[in-house]
Every structure is written in structure tokens, then in C-alpha cells.
């Protein structure tokens, strides 16, 4: 086998392990941050500062009884959690988490697959996330699950549209669909969060809805709507749904950073003379910058969850179709005029 294939395999393994590890520790982070917000201590019995809590939780999930309802469609009931987990992890293949890192005399690109259609790939894969929820809700053969599945698939379809449309001004300005190209454009010019605040706002709101996080977590509103599509799930299957949500959150944070916050670029510092002849240090700086930015966004996701109340379902749909969709269309128009009128952006 040629070395390029081995390097790609290695990158896949590293990204996979890192994402899953972060997912596990996100559950702890969620509980710790919520505890701080609510003036509590949070989990602190297992390990120092509760650091071994995710392992204890994992063991608990493994040893729980895996209960499948008698009338459920067994095959689809087992398939649904996998359908939630897989798209969340697949998206990471095209996200650049660093520039290049010289390893053993080779310049290794810090991205699994630098596709020429990166953004479209992300939206194509993200649109598959609905299947897990819909199939999970239907196969349980329980009316609450079914209604939950319908509710959440309608929500995801609605917000996908404004999410996709909010990215179009970025594509118009940077003139490329490659995520590395978009990151480099921001490195050479300005971050998109500064030049396109409205797109940023639309994208962030839609991605909160897409990841089923509060204030849009109606798919799994446990107090008032009898759970949702996962009412009949237990043990590791429930854990897959649960972890899939966190994996989605990590992907969404990484995307927000890549599209709006300059990806792995750290202005001013990366231009220091020191990095001109220390390629490895520059590569590491980029990777660490990307991780730090993503971590900040993960914190914001948790922060919002424990601060805002939940929307009502008709408000949620109204916001998606009557506010976000027209706004994103107007946004495209505005940036079209700006780009044409002032000759900004593009590949020129």
C-alpha cells in the first residue's frame, strides 16, 4: 500500500478517536457547566473533579437492560440509533482542523478529505440526520414516539433550508466550495463573522435547531411532551441517540468556527517571524487554535441551553418559515448587490 493511503487511514483514526473522546467528555462538561450556572458543584464523586464520570456512565449504559417493545419493528428499531450516529461523525471528514503539519519529512494536510465540494458534502450528509429520528419514532410503535418523530423531522427539514441559504453569501464572497479555500480567504481578508453578521446569526440559530438543542429541543422535551422519538429506547441504543446529539454539536461548532471565525487561523500571532522557519510549530499552533475556538463554541452551546426557556412548537415553526427563511433570502440579495456593486470578494 502506498504511504498516502496509510496517512489518510491514520487521520481518520485520529479524528474518530478525538471526536468520540470529546463526545464522552462533553457529557461531563454539560453537567459541570450547568452546575456552575446553577450555583451547584456537579458530579464530583468519581475521580478528581468528577473526571471519571463519563466512564462510569458508559458502564452503566452497557449493563442496563436493552428493552425492545413487543410490537416494535425489531430491525428498524436497532437501525435508528446507528442512523443518528453515522452522519454526525461522517461530516468531520471534510472539516479542516489545521493547515499542514510536517511529519517525517512529508507535508501532511490536516484534513481527511479536501473535497472540491466540501460545503455541499456537509449539507448532503447533514440532511441524512433526519432518518434516525423518523425511523426511531416510527419503529417503536408507540403514539408518543411517532408524534415525537414527526415533530422532530419537520423541525429539522424546516431549519435545514435557512441553514443552507445562510451559507450562500459566504460561497459568493469567497468564490469556492472548498472549506480550505474558505478558511484561507478569511486568513487573507477578514473573518466572515465581521463581514457577514446576518449570515452568521442565521447560521447559528439554524444550527441550534438542527442539533436539537435548547431553545429548540422539542424533539426530546421530556417534561411536557413525553420525551420524543426515543421514548422506547434504553441501554446502549439510547446512549447512541444521546451521544449522536453531542457529536452533532461538535460538528456544528467546528463548522461555525470554519465558516465564520477563520478556522485554524490566529491573526497577528501566526505572522510572527518566529514561525517562518518553525513549520512544525506553526502547524501545531493552527491545530490548537482550531480546537480552542471549537471548545469556546461548545461552551456557548451549553451556556445557551441552561439560560434560555424552550420555544412552543408553533413559535418554532413560525420562526423558521416566516422569519429565518425570508431573512436569508434578503441576505443573499444584499450580498449579491454588495459583491456586484463594489467588486468585493470573488476569486479575483
Amino acid at each position: 500500500m502506498n504511504p498516502a493511503l496509510w496517512i489518510t487511514l491514520g487521520k481518520i483514526l485520529v479524528v474518530f478517536a478525538l471526536t468520540l473522546g470529546t463526545v464522552a467528555y462533553m457529557t461531563l462538561a454539560e453537567r459541570k457547566v450547568s452546575a456552575i450556572i446553577q450555583w451547584r458543584k456537579g458530579p464530583n464523586r468519581v475521580g478528581i473533579w468528577g473526571l471519571l464520570q463519563p466512564i462510569a456512565d458508559g458502564l452503566k449504559f452497557v449493563f442496563k437492560e436493552d428493552y425492545v417493545p413487543q410490537t416494535a419493528n425489531k430491525a428498524l428499531h436497532a437501525l435508528a440509533p446507528m442512523l443518528t450516529m453515522a452522519p454526525a461523525l461522517m461530516t468531520f471528514a471534510v472539516v479542516p482542523f489545521g493547515s499542514t503539519l510536517p511529519i517525517f519529512g512529508m507535508e501532511v494536510k490536516m484534513i481527511v478529505a479536501d473535497l472540491s465540494i466540501g460545503i455541499l458534502f456537509i449539507f448532503a450528509i447533514a440532511s441524512l440526520g433526519v432518518y434516525g429520528l423518523a425511523v426511531g419514532g416510527w419503529s417503536s410503535n408507540n403514539k408518543y414516539s411517532l408524534l415525537g418523530g414527526l415533530r422532530s423531522s419537520a423541525q429539522m427539514i424546516s431549519y435545514e433550508i435557512s441553514m443552507g441559504l445562510s451559507v450562500i453569501p459566504i460561497i459568493m464572497m469567497s468564490g469556492t466550495l472548498m472549506l480550505t479555500g474558505i478558511v484561507d480567504w478569511q486568513g487573507n481578508h477578514l473573518w466572515f463573522v465581521i463581514t457577514q453578521p446576518l449570515s452568521f446569526l442565521l447560521f447559528v440559530i439554524s444550527s441550534f435547531a438542527e442539533t436539537n438543542r435548547l431553545p429548540f429541543d422539542l424533539p426530546e422535551a421530556e417534561p411536557e411532551l413525553v420525551g420524543g422519538f426515543h421514548t422506547e429506547y434504553s441501554s446502549m441504543k439510547f446512549a447512541s441517540f444521546f451521544l449522536g446529539e453531542y457529536a452533532n454539536m461538535i460538528t456544528a461548532s467546528a463548522l461555525i468556527v470554519t465558516l465564520f471565525f477563520g478556522g485554524y487561523h490566529l491573526p497577528f500571532i501566526e505572522n510572527l517571524a518566529f514561525f517562518d522557519n518553525h513549520g512544525f510549530m506553526l502547524g501545531m499552533l493552527h491545530v490548537i487554535t482550531f480546537m480552542a475556538k471549537t471548545a469556546v463554541w461548545l461552551f456557548i452551546f451549553i451556556w445557551v441551553r441552561w439560560s434560555l426557556p424552550r420555544f412552543r412548537y408553533d413559535q418554532l415553526m413560525g420562526l423558521g418559515w416566516k422569519v429565518l427563511l425570508p431573512l436569508s433570502l434578503v441576505n443573499i440579495l444584499i450580498y449579491g448587490i454588495i459583491i456586484l456593486g463594489f467588486g468585493l470578494g470573488g476569486t479575483s
Binding site: S127, V130, Y131, A134, W138, L146, S153
Partner: peptide
Amino acid sequence: VLFLFVIM
């Protein structure tokens, strides 16, 4: 997804 939605 639309098909699945209608079936459900």
C-alpha cells in the same frame, strides 16, 4: 424524507 413523513 418526504415519503417517510407521509408514510408515518
